[in-house]
Structure formats: structure tokens, C-alpha cells
Write a protein that binds this DNA or RNA. Structure first.
Length: 721
RNA sequence: GCGCCCUUAGCUCAGUUGGUAGAGCAACCCAUUUACACUGGGAAGGUCAGGAGUUCGAAUCUCUUAGGGCGCACCA
């Protein structure tokens, strides 16, 4: 008798949690507990890109989990010693910003009202809640991940890894403290790295004016308020208009502020832009600061951390830069110095996490030097060279490979990485100060008077260590046990974090371990709505993966996300597509029902060989498919495999083979009938195994009836051909 | 300014050493208590963005034009 449940449509909700519990109980998520076949197999390892503990999972995370679980389940069925390490990311700025905002809204308090300790306690509570939700969502997706090794980017072990890495880089001269113009986010009250800036094109005005009637050179700027901090006028050395002024010095009182300007020649000045002369503001522009370094110009700060002016006339001093700008323009008009006002479009820099307008400010911060040379075994390297070399020599390969060019292009223009943040949530910088002394160490120095640096590290500093900090590094004993899993086999992640994360992992791993963090990088794109639009709150086009799982099952959601979406491409997902794969789950269910009832009193025989001619052909077609699919799986072409399986199962196997089986089974030719029944067994067993990485729940549930044994489909052998 | 990518059936996309165009969805016609809370059968639909070149042969290689997306840089 076939079970009653097959008489009803496939019901994912009553199945999935039960199946997941079975898998977990089996222990097979942990490579140490896999069957002998796998223990002897080659290692396959992958880390989960740790989701931020800022909120719940979105479709992008669901896509990531689907692809990675396909890779992992396939590897496991191929007999590999398969490890998938889970974790979550503390996402320093992002998380603190979310909690701060929440407290501001509910209690009208700032973090300074609460104090460092209380604020961290509040964040901790928030993080625990979101962490638990995220983890339960990963289970719902069917992720066959080793929960016994779960890590957090801010837990004790990872903190030790961070301190160890920092110390080593400091000793090698690759981490330094420097007074430089950095990207300051006035809204988040912290510095941010170049990569944490997003650009937005806005219309603005370009003003052309003179500092005073006595200065013969006019300049153009979009930010007149910063001109109170100018210390030079720069012109192109070949500009005939200004050659005669080079080296001259002028004094003026600009909007109430005395300024002293030296005319300098710098090749970076374009002759065509504006008047061909520019006011140099070393304290409030990274480009000007670099120019000031070249010409030994003084630096004069006129804007503070709150983006307010610190000098100038009434109506300028203590005002926000935006207000001060208008006041300076009014002053220029009144003095008759303004010559031109034009509308132009230009990019403004926004802090990615807070949306604040980035204000370049001179600050004492910690940096990773990417161009500084260091010695390793007698050979001189820079971090940039290490990062470039491993990709050039194909020690790390990109899928799709065009990202290799993108990666190199980014490295080409890479500047020193500012890693200190003035926020509280994160890894505290392992540096202590006492009077004029400085101590950098893995552990705090002995003695009482040492005060630890107040700042925390960029969240990507700890993320960069992820492939090996999760395997126990720097604890030698633990890392040695896990040594076979590093370099990891593959990294699967979103193409949007190739610089943030992929590049930083390559940096940290090549520097600290002298080996790559992964051999292959598989990049997926953005998940968009059915119309190809970005998912956004304002459009209200968000599709909640959990809601879809409840409605259509995780198998359907997984298939909808991966079919027909090649690596690196954005995917379009709408409810209709998910629904179509729910119907497919049901189709598989009914195929099983038909075969189970047709073969009810017959035993499956693996050695059966008396195939009818038609069945021989069917076997051939199926084997060709298996062969094709297997090589495509090895090439990570899941988007093709999913589609091919769908097509074969539905339109070849169900529509043709099962249809013709009806008359064969009702017929009188026992030999043909027998052959067909054995073939149905054979094909169903193959189909379930082939589909399992893609649709693990429904296939496992059917396998329990078909396999007629207690063995789990998840550790069955991938079909041979 | 530098770099990457895209333009194939109404829609979403495959098409990997160059060999007379494919799938899913949608739309159309017909059938159907069927293993199928639906499904089956059928037919229709494309000068592969435009142009030039290489070739016996180009959706596929080269150049070019147009449109679109993205990244980096600049942002006086």
C-alpha cells in the first residue's frame, strides 16, 4: 500500500521541518560524522558569507543559500568530505546605526546618553534576536550547514584572530597611525573607508570668483564655504595665463577669515576646467590634501566633525556647511567678487550606511598600507602585489571570469585602507597608550596606567580573516586539525562585495598564511523583482522569502531563484515563477505516486539486465543526460542543470515515458512489462538523486518510500552513467 | 576620463573551441475526473540592435555605430 499522503497534493509545510530535523539528527552536516565513503573522499569546504545581524534574511540571502546548498549537497553526494561553515557578521556600523536609530525613536536618547557599556549591552540584545531569526530562516531554506561550527565575526575566537593579525601587520609596518584627510561621516560620527562611500549625481552650482579685488586670479568651486581654509592657488605649470604668478603669495580676508595664499604649479590641474586655476583646501579635500603634501603647504581646518564652520563672519561661523555656503555667496555678491554662477551636475559622496554627506577632514587614524614594502623570506612585497599576483597566476579563479578584470582595475587605484572607526560596536583596536608611549599587542600590557584606543576596527577587517578564523586560526592545535579545509574550495558571494570582502580575504590570507583563501570565487548578482527593478522599500516590491516558503515550499523558492540565472547576472524573481516550481514539486510527487502504485508488488533489482528495446533507448537518453548534467555541475552551471532537469522530468519522463507505460503495464507482454517496471524504478531513483541538490525536501520525502530503507538521500551516491 | 557587461520569439533568458536558432512563462486552438487542487495534445511566434570585415560558412571572431546597465576615478 502506498501511504495516504500520496493521495493528496504535495504539502511542503507538513514535510519540510520534519525532513530538516531528520537531516540534523543524522549528523551528516558535520564532515566528521559523514559515512566512510565521504571520510575517505577529498575535502570540500566553503564558508557561508555571514549575513549581517542587522535584520532578517531577504531574497538575496535566500539565493546565496540556495546556490551554496546545491554546491554542498552535490559535493556530499559525490563522496567528498564536505564542510559548510555558518556564521553571522556583526556589521559594526550598520548594526550600531540600526540600534541607535531605534533607541532615538523610542526613547529619544543618543548613544552618549546611554554610555558605551549600556549601548553595547543594548546592541547585544538586538543582535541575539536577529541572529536567532536568521538562523531559523537558514534552516527553512534547507541549508545543510555544520551548525556545530557556527561562528560570529565578533566572538572571542574571532577577536583573538583580529588582535593577532593586527599585531603582525603592525610589526611588519603594514599598519600605521597617520594624520591624514579621511572620509568623515558627520551623521555616523565616524571615519569610513573609500569603499563605504556611495556616489549620487546631483545638480549644483559652480561659482567663479576672486578671493579679493587685489588677487588677480579667479577660481571656480562648488563649495565656497571651504575656501576659508585655502592655503594655495594651483595652476597648471604650462598655463600661459598664470605662469607669471607662480611662486607669488597673496593675503586677503575672505568672508571674515584672514587667508594666505601661495600660487603653485601642479600638473594635475586641468587647463580647461573653470578658470584653469583652483583654490587648494588641504584640510577638506583628499585630492587637495595630496597636492598639499607634494608642495608642503600648510593645512587649515575650518569645518568640524558636525560639518559646521569654525571660522568666518556672523552667519558663517558655527553654521552648517550648507547654510554657510549661501552666506559666503551672499558675501561674494555684496563685495562684487562673484563673477559667474553656473548649473552643473556633480557627484556627491554619501556614507553608505547612514546616508550622511561625507566631509573630508584631517584626522589621526589607523591605516593598512597597501603600497609599503615588507620582506618575506628575503623577498620584498607589497600587499597590492600579493593581491595581484595570486589572481594573475590563477591561484584564484573568478566565475564569471570577467570579474578578474574588475578586480585588477580596483587594485590599480587602491589607496591605503582606513581601518579605525569611531563607533563602539566592533573589535576594539589592540593598541594602548601611556603618556607618550604606545603599545601594540595581542594582549593588554601589564601595568595600570595604560589606556586602550577608543576606536574599533572596520568590520571588513575581521571579515577578511573569515576563511581561516572559522577554522581555528591562530590556535595552532585547532587550525592544524582543520588544515585540510584551507584554502577553501570555493567562495560563493554577491558580486557587490567583491572589493569589500573578496579582495580583503585575499589580502589577509596571502599575507598571514601565504596561501589563497579559496581557489574559486563564484559571484551571483542582485535579486530584482519580476520587472527587473531593484528591491526597495519605497517601491514596496519586496518579496519575503519566508512568506514564499510558507506558501510554496523551500524547494520551489530555491528553484525559482537559481534556474536561468547565470553567475554574475541579476535575477528576476516574482511570485508566479515560484508558483510554477511549486507545481513542479507536485508533479514529482505524482510521478512518485504513479510509480509506487505501479511497482507495488515488484522488487527493485539493481542487477536487472533484460531490458526491452524501448527501455534501452530510455536508459541511453537518461544516461546521456546524467553525463551532461554532471559535467555542468562540475562547472557550476546550476542555472542550466535546473532547467534541464525540469524539462526532462516533466516533458520527457512524465509526458512521454509514463504515458506510454500505462498501456505497457496494462498489456500482456510480461517481458516488456517487467522491463518497464524496472526502468521506472531505475529512472525514479536517478531523478530523485539528480534533483536532490536543487529540491532537497520533496526528493528526500519521496526517497523514504522509494528507497525502502532508512538511508538518507542526502548521502546517497550521485548517479553514474 | 578608465574599465566591465548587455542588446536573441510579447516577457525572462539559454545558446563555451564558428556549421542551416532553443527553453520557460504569456497568448491561441483542441482535449480532459486524469498519477497531477489541474493536466495532456497541437499550432503559432525571431532578417539573433544597425553597419562593415575575416571565413566555404558568423548569434558566435574583429572593427564600428546606436541604446542600456554597472564599477572605478574625477568631482575646482
Amino acid at each position: 500500500m502506498i501511504p495516504d499522503k500520496f493521495l493528496k497534493p504535495y504539502d511542503p509545510t507538513s514535510t519540510e521541518d520534519r525532513i530538516y530535523a531528520l537531516w540534523e539528527k543524522s549528523g551528516f552536516f558535520n564532515p566528521d560524522k559523514l559515512p566512510e565513503r565521504n571520510k575517505k573522499g577529498e575535502p570540500f569546504s566553503i564558508v557561508l558569507p555571514p549575513p549581517n545581524v542587522t535584520g532578517v534574511l531577504h531574497m538575496g540571502s535566500a539565493l546565496m543559500l540556495a546556490i551554496e546548498d546545491i554546491m554542498v549537497r552535490y559535493a556530499r553526494m559525490k563522496g567528498k568530505q564536505t564542510l559548510w561553515i555558518p556564521g553571522t557578521d556583526h556589521a559594526a556600523i550598520a548594526t550600531q546605526a540600526v540600534v541607535e536609530k531605534d533607541i532615538q525613536r523610542k526613547e529619544d536618547k543618543s548613544r552618549h546618553d546611554l554610555g558605551r557599556e549600556e549601548m553595547l549591552r543594548r546592541i547585544g540584545t538586538h543582535v541575539q534576536t536577529t541572529h536567532d531569526i536568521i538562523v531559523s530562516q537558514m534552516r527553512k531554506m534547507g541549508a545543510s550547514i555544520d551548525w556545530s561550527r557556527e561562528a560570529f565575526t565578533l566572538d572571542d575566537k574571532r577577536n583573538l584572530a583580529v588582535r593577532t593579525a593586527f599585531k603582525k601587520m603592525y610589526d611588519d609596518g603594514l599598519i600605521y597611525r597617520g594624520y591624514r584627510v579621511v572620509n568623515w561621516d558627520p551623521k555616523g560620527q565616524t571615519t569610513i573607508s573609500d569603499d563605504e562611500i556611495v556616489y549620487e549625481t546631483r545638480k549644483t552650482k559652480l561659482y567663479t570668483f576672486r578671493y579679493s579685488k587685489d588677487i588677480p586670479i579667479s577660481i571656480s568651486t562648488t563649495r565656497p564655504e571651504t575656501k576659508l581654509g585655502d592655503t594655495a592657488i594651483a595652476v597648471n605649470p604650462d598655463d600661459p595665463r598664470y605662469k607669471k604668478y607662480i611662486g607669488e603669495e597673496f593675503d586677503a580676508v575672505f568672508a571674515g577669515e584672514p587667508i594666505h595664499l601661495k600660487v603653485i604649479a601642479d600638473a594635475s590641474v586641468e587647463l580647461e576646467f573653470g578658470t584653469g586655476a583652483l583654490g587648494v583646501t588641504p584640510a577638506h579635500s583628499i585630492a587637495d590634501w595630496e597636492m598639499a603634501q607634494r608642495h608642503s603647504l600648510p593645512l587649515k581646518q575650518v569645518i568640524n566633525e558636525y560639518a559646521k564652520m569654525t571660522v568666518g563672519l556672523d552667519g558663517i561661523k558655527d553654521k552648517k556647511t550648507t547654510e554657510a555656503r549661501e552666506a559666503v555667496v551672499d558675501w561674494l555678491k555684496k563685495e562684487g567678487l562673484l563673477e559667474k554662477e553656473e548649473d552643473i551636475e556633480h557627484n556627491i559622496s554619501l556614507a553608505e550606511r547612514t546616508g550622511g554627506i561625507v566631509e573630508p577632514l584631517p584626522k589621526l587614524q589607523w591605516f593598512v598600507a597597501v603600497n609599503r614594502e615588507f620582506k618575506r623570506e628575503g623577498v620584498t612585497f607589497t600587499l597590492k602585489q600579493l593581491m595581484t599576483r595570486v589572481v594573475e597566476t590563477d591561484q584564484v579563479q573568478f566565475i564569471p571570469d570577467r570579474f578578474r578584470d574588475v578586480y585588477h582595475h580596483w587594485i590599480g587605484s587602491l589607496r591605503d585602507w582606513c581601518i579605525s572607526r569611531q563607533i563602539w560596536y566592533g573589535h576594539r583596536i589592540p593598541v594602548w597608550y601611556k603618556n607618550q608611549e604606545i603599545y601594540v599587542g595581542v594582549e593588554a600590557p601589564k601595568g595600570n596606567d595604560w589606556i586602550q584606543d577608543e576606536d574599533t576596527l572596520d568590520t571588513w577587517f575581521s571579515s577578511g580573516l573569515w576563511t581561516f578564523s572559522t577554522l581555528g586560526w591562530p590556535d595552532e592545535k585547532e587550525f592544524n586539525i582543520n588544515r585540510k579545509y584551507h584554502p577553501t574550495t570555493i567562495l560563493e558571494t554577491g558580486s557587490d562585495i567583491i572589493f569589500f570582502w573578496v579582495a580583503r580575504m585575499i589580502l589577509m590570507s596571502t599575507y598571514l598564511l601565504d596561501e589563497v583563501p579559496f581557489k574559486t570565487v563564484y559571484l551571483h548578482g542582485l535579486v530584482r523583482d519580476g520587472k527587473g527593478r531593484k528591491i526597495s522599500k519605497s517601491l514596496g516590491n519586496n518579496i519575503d522569502p519566508l512568506e514564499m516558503i510558507i506558501k510554496y515550499g523551500a524547494d520551489a523558492v530555491r528553484m525559482a531563484l537559481i534556474v536561468a540565472v547565470g553567475p554574475g547576472n541579476d535575477s528576476k524573481v516574482d511570485e508566479q515563477k515560484i508558483k510554477a516550481y511549486k507545481l513542479f514539486s507536485n508533479k514529482i510527487w505524482n510521478i512518485a505516486r504513479f510509480i509506487l502504485s505501479a511497482t507495488e508488488n515488484v522488487k527493485y533489482s539493481a542487477e536487472f539486465s533484460e531490458w526491452s528495446d524501448t527501455d534501452k533507448k530510455h536508459i541511453e537518453v537518461l544516461n546521456d543526460l546524467i553525463k551532461e548534467i554532471t559535467s555542468e555541475m562540475d562547472e557550476y552551471k546550476f542555472y542550466l542543470v535546473g532547467e534541464k532537469l525540469y524539462h526532462y522530468v516533466w516533458h520527457e519522463f512524465a509526458d512521454k515515458i509514463i504515458e506510454e507505460s500505462k498501456s505497457i503495464i496494462d498489456g500482456t507482454d510480461e517481458k516488456v512489462k517487467n522491463s518497464r517496471i524496472q526502468f521506472l524504478f531505475y529512472a525514479l531513483r536517478a531523478i530523485l538523486r539528480l534533483l536532490h541538490p536543487f529540491m532537497p525536501f520533496v526528493t528526500e520525502e519521496i526517497w523514504r518510500e522509494v528507497g525502502k530503507s532508512k538511508s538518507l538521500l542526502m548521502v546517497e551516491e550521485w548517479p553514474r552513467y
